[in-house]
């Protein structure tokens, strides 16, 4: 084990867990954000049913991201969470409303409009909070003596609000392209129209965040525009343009799966860009992965489990998706 750079490996695993969370809960939060624009009745029921069997598994990645951060990088966990306190609380409460609505809206037809509102509002608040947290981390956290040393509203800035809005649009794009895949008829047509608008907004958001990021700190500037970072950053805008082109053509020409896959590709590229920006820090501006890491004995103990268990998790999660594959409620067998 001694030869392995365990902190770096764990940064990769937690990065993967966060990414898995963002894309998987991203499409269900996206459907939540769009939920109120769908007409009550079958379209809403179908949208809900397209995610009901899988949302719980999707959200578990958030617990792994949080629990993994505590375990592998306790210092980062102990700084980021207090620094973004109101956002974390808002996200958690948003997830409460969103999570219970799955069951409650069926259990109480008289109050279904209320739980539908709770579903939308909860999803929106959770997504917005996550986006603002991202911005707050990127813009840097004030640390003294290994502890958060700022106030409880330091996270609030035009930049963090921008990342919040951009993530809401991006989640909604994922959600609408998921609906293009999983529904048909009028619902699918609406999802297509939504996806085009949201694709434009998402790209605008990505562009604005990308333009603003190098000006947050000179470090970001160096990592993006000087060698060797330039080799990594230069292809990103080109790939984004290519994905965007395929996204919009596939939405126009009637493809059902390609739009969702292209929306996913955009997330991959954003994530790569963020990785290039932050590495080797875990709490910008100056706490690195290695400074924040737990001792190797902790990391090695968990790695043994992760290597065996995470592939198993991916396998049975994939099975659960496969069981519920196909269009939702297309030809109900009743």
């Amino acid at each position: 084990m001694a030869a392995l750079d365990l902190p770096l490996i764990w940064a990769g695993i937690i990065g993967f867990a966060i990414f898995a969370y963002v894309v998987m809960d991203g499409f269900d939060l996206g459907i939540g954000i769009l939920f109120h624009t769908l007409p009550p009745g079958k379209e809403r029921d179908h949208a809900m049913n397209s995610i009901a069997p899988v949302w719980d598994g999707n959200e578990t990645w958030l617990v792994l991201g949080g629990g993994g951060l505590l375990a592998a990088f306790p210092l980062a966990y102990a700084i980021i969470l207090p620094a973004t306190y109101p956002l974390i609380i808002a996200m958690l409460l948003g997830l409460v409303f969103r999570g219970v609505a799955f069951e409650f809206r069926w259990r109480d037809p008289a109050h279904q409009p209320m739980w539908d509102k709770a579903f939308t509002a909860g999803s929106l608040i959770a997504a917005l909070s996550q986006g603002i947290i991202l911005g707050a981390v990127l813009q840097g956290i004030h640390v003294e003596n290994d502890a958060y040393a700022g106030g409880w509203l330091d996270w609030l800035s035009p930049f963090s609000l921008l990342t919040g809005a951009a993530l809401v649009c991006a989640y909604a794009l994922l959600g609408s392209t998921w609906l293009v895949w999983k529904t048909e008829g009028a619902g699918q047509d609406r999802a297509r129209r939504n996806a085009i608008l949201l694709g434009v907004l998402t790209l605008a958001g990505m562009g604005a965040v990308s333009l603003a990021t190098p000006f947050l700190s000179i470090d970001y500037w160096y990592r993006w525009f000087e060698m060797p970072g330039l080799i990594l950053t230069a292809p990103v805008p080109l790939l984004v343009a290519a994905c965007a082109l395929v996204l919009f053509t596939s939405l126009k020409n009637g493809s059902e799966r390609l739009p969702f896959l292209m929306a996913l590709a955009l997330f991959v590229l954003c994530f790569a860009g963020l990785g290039i920006s932050i590495y080797p820090n875990i709490v910008p501006p100056n706490i690195t992965i290695w400074q924040a890491a737990a001792p190797d004995s902790s990391l090695a103990f968990m790695l043994v489990g992760a290597v065996v268990i995470v592939p198993l998790i991916l396998a049975y999660s994939a099975w659960a998706y496969w069981v519920f594959r196909g269009k939702v409620g297309a030809h109900g067998y009743h």
Binding site: T60, L64, G67, G68, L70, Y77, M302, I309, I313
Partner: peptide, 13 residues
Amino acid sequence: GSVIGPLMAYEVM
């Protein structure tokens, strides 16, 4: 965190 975190990570996994 280095002691209790891995146990909780195992709980999740």
